[in-house]
Design a protein around this nucleic acid. Structure first.
Length: 493
RNA sequence: GGGCCGGUAGCUCAGUGGUAGAGCAUCGGACUUUUAAUCCGUUGGUCGUGGGUUCGAUCCCCACCCGGCUCACCA
């Protein structure tokens, strides 16, 4: 193993521990009586009782003054000051603490609590134990100094260790997922797991990752969505199912996209897309309330109000309000383009009416949606798995949820007519042949399932990572994923 | 993929066509109530990689790698 200068110095201290008969990586650990936070909470009682306490963690700072020393020991809950003196721990133990322990090392300290001259609750140490030697020094004794985003993401373990505040993001992430799971469980939904490796991918407009099963000589795709399997389960008779898991999409990486990301999809029998709106706003508000005790979050200085009901605006109205263009009046590509021209909008031309509507919406409306908003009634060709509106088959019963200018969720009244669904797949196939490499594949087994009969069903998918961004006030998805995708670093030889 | 910006000590960053700088960390010394302790001294670099121009390149030019922002595409 190769060491740099700093690591070499620490390695030599490790050898000195061993020479003194002390294992720098002991298997047995003294019993921890308190975390830093617990010690703080119980401090007054401990001060009165003078009970013996033991805390353990990384040495974060150390101030040596000849024959005594102050230090801070940091654990997952926070940090706590300890005080050592030669008189109390003995010359040998004191010198070892000063000479052989480095910042970042794990140590245990036992003693009794007291308050320093300057009023800081502290542990007066009577003995200490080496728990684990660290060879690589912490980047800086000051928190938050390890700030290079590339280094932080490549070596997340240093980021988390050096920037304890960073751990809070991932605690909130865990609590958010936990809260959503609890909400759905309490409503009677069944959590299920469906295949990640799929012979036919579908359920979203996206390019897949392709892999191969050697023994079966079979190409497989990593799922881009869980939708089509979850709907098969509704066919099977479950009233409500959900899955929280990774989807994989072979696309670019930016502040809203990671090639693998976490999605919640939920399906409810005998329900429609309006029920999904109620479910979505209820679940998100519940999670915020559970985690923060409030439904008002701050995102980059803007208060975001999550308490429902959220505005429900049709795509037609949203576009009309923002641009004056009425997509109901312009039902042909040419007339729509004409209206866009007349309105003086800078919108790229798209090959079909539906895609032109989508472009118009994305450019002119989406960035304006800061507070949670449901946009409803999408053009049918953009929605190959959604049920048509009874009074206007050019549109479907669908909504997407937007906030902070980005899309969060997508939901519809699920198409359960196998004949219509087959036509939609065929239409997708034509799109694919025409060069749309994100179009879905014909899934004949899914059609077989629909032939067996699927009740009217509402379905919804929501991007967990983006929700975590909103909940943790982060502007890039990389900050809410522990190990985001990065290009391979240059080979280090 | 396009445009713009960046990569210098372990970390955070200055800087220059002529021997490479600071703070913190490291190392040595002083110090028994410190608070990112303080004080004195010290070590540490293939200046992202590879070419080119030049007497001389970390600096100028070209290509590439990695990252950030942004545009395009998408949850």
């Amino acid at each position: 193993m190769e060491f740099n200068d700093l690591q070499q110095t620490r390695y030599e201290k490790l050898r000195q521990f061993q020479a003194a008969g002390i294992d720098p990586f002991p298997a047995r650990v003294p019993k921890r009586t308190h975390t830093a936070a617990a010690l703080q909470a119980a401090f007054d009682a401990l001060l009165a009782s003078q009970a013996t306490v033991t805390i353990m963690g990384r040495l974060r700072t150390r101030r040596v003054m000849g024959k005594s020393s102050f230090a801070h020991i940091a654990d997952d809950s926070g940090s706590f000051q300890v005080f050592l003196s030669k008189r109390d721990v003995g010359d040998e133990a004191f010198d070892r603490f000063v000479d052989l322990v480095d910042l970042g090392d794990f140590v245990a300290a036992t003693g009794y609590v007291f308050i320093t001259k300057t009023g800081e609750p502290s542990v007066h140490v009577t003995s200490w134990t080496m728990l684990s030697k660290t060879l690589t020094p912490p980047p800086d004794k000051r928190e938050g100094q390890f700030s290079d985003s590339e280094a932080r993401q490549r070596q997340r373990y240093i980021d988390l260790a050096a920037n304890p505040a960073q751990r809070e993001t991932f605690r909130i992430r865990a609590r958010l997922i936990s809260a959503m799971r609890r909400y759905l469980d309490e409503q009677g939904f069944l959590e299920v797991e469906t295949p990640v490796l799929q012979p036919i991918y579908g359920g979203a407009a996206a390019r897949p990752f392709k892999t191969h099963h050697n023994q079966l000589h079979q190409d497989l795709f990593l799922r881009v969505a869980t939708e089509l399997y979850l709907k098969r389960l509704i066919v099977g008779g479950f009233d409500g199912v959900y899955e929280i898991g990774k989807d994989f999409r072979n696309e670019g990486v930016d502040r809203f996209h990671n090639p693998e990301f976490t999605m919640l999809e939920v399906y409810q029998a005998f329900a429609d897309y309006t029920d999904m709106m109620t479910l979505t706003e209820g679940m998100v508000a519940y999670a915020a309330e559970q985690i923060f005790g409030t439904t008002t979050l701050d995102f980059q200085g803007t208060p975001i109000e999550l308490a429902g009901p959220w505005p429900r605006i049709t795509m037609r109205d949203a576009i009309h309000n923002q641009t004056g263009v009425d997509i109901r009046e312009c039902r042909e590509l040419e007339s729509l383009r004409e209206a866009i021209r007349e309105a003086g909008l800078k919108v790229e031309y798209k090959p079909t009416w539906a895609k032109q509507v989508d472009e118009l919406f994305s450019e002119c409306v989406e960035p304006t949606l800061i507070q949670p908003t449901f946009i409803t009634e999408y053009p049918q060709p953009l929605s190959p798995l959604a049920k048509r509106k009874a009074d206007d088959p050019m549109f479907v019963e669908r909504f997407e949820l937007f906030a902070i200018g980005a899309e969060f969720a997508n939901a519809f009244s699920e198409l359960n007519d196998p004949i219509d669904q087959e036509q939609r797949f065929l239409e997708q196939g034509r799109d694919y042949a025409a060069g749309d490499d994100e179009a879905m594949q014909m899934d004949t087994d899914f059609l077989e399932a629909l032939k067996v009969g699927m009740p009217p069903t509402g379905g919804m998918g929501i991007g967990i990572d983006r929700l975590v961004m909103l909940f943790t006030n982060q502007t890039t998805i990389r900050e809410v994923i522990l190990f985001p995708h990065l290009r391979r670093a240059q080979t280090e030889e």
